[in-house]
Design a protein around this nucleic acid. Structure first.
Lengths: 226, 226
DNA sequence: GCAAAAGTGTTCAATGTACACCCATGC
DNA sequence: GCATGGGTGTACATTGAACACTTTTGC
């Protein structure tokens, strides 16, 4: 089964977003064998002089035309049979993106391939072991959310507390108590409160908040990059 | 700087133990360039038809002659300059071992190389980026200890609560309150209590406990393998 | 009888959880 | 004036933290 004489190494990226109030993942329909026409998470080969994070950033940019988003190494998969007829080890990453930052037309225009968001609860068959990688990415996202405010990577700079709560609910796939959620978020001291409100669309306007970049950076090392 | 035309892929293993009431790591003094005579964590190349966990197990066995110990993938390091004159990506693992399970003479006998335990707080200069890998391993161990009972991997099958507490203290590098520690451990319901006691060596005998294999397995997936 | 480690409970603070009503707006 | 989502507080349970003395043994 093994034709190659060397290891090849790729990065594969689980790109998650929230869209239509659902947690969705970016998939590309493969244009060539193996697994032609199957959907797969975006990936590509690592260049010899490129470090892993840079390779992930490059692949991300090539496929989505988006830069400067949250990216974290997940796990490395290297079963010798995961890729037909070659030994391909993949270093997986996960990325979070605001879905409206990504114009799928632009992304698709760069390639011929189909590229689309898919609900993580309603997935087609995926190529290779990509289902396993995706599951691992979602698990990691939920773990992260429990003790870091990664949700800000999925929200506009200014947002309402209800938007923030919906983000948590979608990721954790559970309902949260409104009063407890607000109390908790405000007590963390990581939010800036504005005197701005949403322009009502037939209901009471909601106060806008943003994450406090300095505190986020101090607590997590994330640089907020809007 | 880059002479190779392909990626090479290795595993490197942070092997930790508790010995002489200290957290120690197994290091091998390199017998050849690069970094000849420097200390390094054990590692080796991944074979083409071998999956990553198996490669780690094999390297672990080759270097230590020990099987069936706790092993977990850590992180993949792939800076193009981490290894001189070649592109070597390494998938790092961490392992926990009871130090008396490992006879260093036997391990050293297999190779010519020096092999030795080193306190993690008093390390020589390490080859490559191994210091970074080791730090990452210790961080992971501490995280694991906060919500899984990995400590049993470092203790004999039957142990006293004081031994267990010392294990936690050494790993976390902090002192713990005896009463609170015991209350917590017993309340977790993961310990079997025996009517056996240590044979006193001039002080009050201590009750022996073991971890409940079924509960550990259900909670963590670990198979206890003594 | 004394040195040395084993063993044992209570109080307080902080955190998490459950739960229901009024408010501001557009129509 | 009513429908819609925004906004607020209190009581209770659970968990973690601080803290000191008695017990059992070998010598």
């Amino acid at each position: 089964m093994m034709e190659s004489k060397t290891h090849e190494v790729t990065v594969d990226i689980v790109i998650l977003t929230i869209r239509k109030k659902k947690l969705e993942v970016l998939l590309i329909q493969r244009g060539q064998e193996p697994y032609k026409d199957k959907w797969a998470i975006p990936g590509g080969f690592i260049r010899l002089t490129e470090n892993l994070d840079d390779a992930a950033k490059r692949v991300l940019f090539e496929k989505t035309h988006v830069k400067d988003i949250y990216l974290e190494q997940l796990y490395t998969f290297g079963d010798p049979y995961r890729y037909p007829n070659a030994r391909v080890i993949t270093v997986s990453y996960f990325a979070l993106i605001r879905s409206d930052d990504l114009k799928l037309e632009a992304a698709a225009g760069l390639n011929i391939q189909q590229i689309n968001w898919h609900s993580v609860y309603n997935l087609p068959d995926l190529a290779f072991d990509h289902r396993q990688i995706l599951d691992y990415g979602m698990k990691r996202l939920r773990e992260r959310l429990e003790y870091t405010p990664v949700a800000f990577q999925l929200l506009p700079r200014k947002f309402t507390l209800t938007q923030l709560q919906r983000t948590y609910e979608v990721i954790l796939n559970t309902d949260l108590d409104k009063r407890n959620f607000r109390k908790k978020m405000l007590s963390l001291g990581i939010l800036n409160e504005y005197e701005e409100f949403t322009k009502a669309s037939s209901k009471r306007p909601a106060r806008l908040y943003s994450f406090n970049d300095e505190i986020i950076k101090a607590q997590t090392g994330f640089v907020v990059d809007i």
